[in-house]
């Protein structure tokens, strides 16, 4: 998989590829379609715009969490840091459901003895 991607694309590492900067546009389109009626249609420009928006939002929240980790001299950004960043940036309504989901994931991880990032 990685070999084929590396082989087909150019070996120039100085260029940030589109697939590294943005989320996959098909997945974004599917998520947008989930909350729409059955016969609704989404234009290609709408998908591309939403793709840019959600990718920038992820970078925005992650940079806030990373800044907190830098101040506390930690190297790993965990789920609590993301929830804290959401609350700090004013997205309080989303921080609490995220915390509950994080706790559920931690319980599942401890049960299965999986290593969460």
């Amino acid at each position: 998989m990685e070999d084929s991607i590396g082989g087909s694309s150019s070996n120039d590492n100085n260029i940030i590829k589109e697939q590294d900067r943005l989320l996959p546009i098909a997945n974004v389109g599917r998520l947008m379609k989930q909350i729409l009626p059955q016969n609704a249609k989404i234009s290609k420009e709408a998908k591309e715009t939403m793709q840019e928006c959600v990718s920038e939002f992820i970078s925005f929240v992650t940079s806030e969490a990373s800044e907190k980790c830098r101040k506390e001299r930690r190297k790993t950004v965990n789920g609590d840091d993301i929830c804290w960043a959401l609350a700090t940036l004013g997205f309080d309504d989303y921080a609490e459901p995220m915390r509950r989901k994080s706790r559920t994931k931690i319980q599942e991880a401890s049960t299965n003895q999986n290593d969460l990032c």
């Binding site: 989320l23 997945n27 974004v28 998520l31 959600v54």
Partner: peptide
Amino acid sequence: TSTRDISDNEADEQQQSEPQMQ
């Protein structure tokens, strides 16, 4: 590692996108 990164991205996307669209 790349597979985990992709799954993490999808998890983040699924958790954040719907409230955002609302």
